[in-house]
Nucleic acid binder design. Structure first.
Lengths: 164, 164
DNA sequence: TTCAAATATGTTATGTTGTATCTTTACGGC
DNA sequence: GCCGTAAAGATACAACATAACATATTTGAA
């Protein structure tokens, strides 16, 4: 992987506090604690492992990575518990069509984000287009439905895999 | 279940050849054969079972129902094979956020459909809003991504579960 | 019609994802 | 120190999905 060669477009340019590395870790800790949850060693380890993946990671992928890092076996169910917390606190997102998770690098903003998942290389980017996601929510309401959580993902081919 | 008490709204009213019962079966057969695939007893049985569910059904749910109907054990992997064909031929859709499948009652029209899945009762309806789905595709293209298959689903509460 | 090739299904096994339950451990207040 | 609570570990199992190979059925050409 040559790293991100393109950035997700933002339809409405508002300030996203995107973080990385140590900054992301402390942002995650802050968000977690503000939402009344503890920031334990285990949670830090899981978040670090998750954030280190450059594509969506399954709970088992994360369990493996944490196990490696700690030199002991960490069970998947512990990881699931923590991932659920993360998703609840907006520190991570679940990619439904991949049964996998990604770290949220701007946990301070709340969006119905749109994932673009490359079927060739697995790399995943996301858009935060509140107009589009708002349209989806509105259409659901129009049909009498009360939307709680839109799932908007696009399977396809990323620029790298298309133009080699 | 008291049956469908509301219908999915259509943003752009074009003629949908919605079928049910025997009509749906023969439409399915026609679509399947036009796409160069055989319409076997087994496929008919799987389609019938799938169409009989009033909410998204897992491959195992379908395997159970077909097993019942035939008085013999039908293995899940046979069902998976056939479901994959159905999805390819637009006879069925996969609901990603539910790991389940629904029959497509108008296999003649091709849409990126939007599923509304009730987290309370599991009932699922769908919208065909080409404008919205087109917007999602366009946004992906805007980011340099080549969309193949948008996945647009909304988790929430259906009208029945909201207003008891 | 008969046979060979291609397609479909059956059988068995295994891999992956996700939960449930119960036990043990860590931490804080008393 | 003792106890209550929250977190994490251990184990088991349920649910979802695919792989590999054997058998059966269909198709179409000789």
């Amino acid at each position: 992987m040559a790293g991100k060669a393109y950035l997700a477009a933002m339809a409405h340019d508002h300030h996203h506090h995107s973080h990385e590395g140590a900054s992301l870790m402390s942002a995650a800790q802050g968000t977690m604690e503000r939402s009344g949850e503890q920031w334990t060693q285990m949670r830090a380890a899981v978040f670090e492992a998750l954030a280190a993946f450059d594509k969506p990671a399954s709970a088992y992928d994360i369990a493996d990575k944490v196990s490696q890092a700690q030199g002991r076996r960490v069970a998947a169910n512990s990881v699931y518990r923590i991932l659920d917390l993360f998703v609840g606190a907006n520190l991570a997102r679940r990619v439904e069509s991949a049964n996998a998770y990604v770290a949220n690098d701007h946990p301070d903003c709340l969006h119905d984000c749109i994932f673009l998942i490359c079927d060739t290389c697995g790399n995943t980017t996301h858009l935060d287009d509140d107009k589009l996601s708002g349209g989806v929510r509105a259409a659901a309401k129009e049909a009498g439905f009360s939307p709680q959580r839109p799932v908007i993902e696009v399977r396809g081919t990323c620029p790298e895999c298309k133009d080699p």
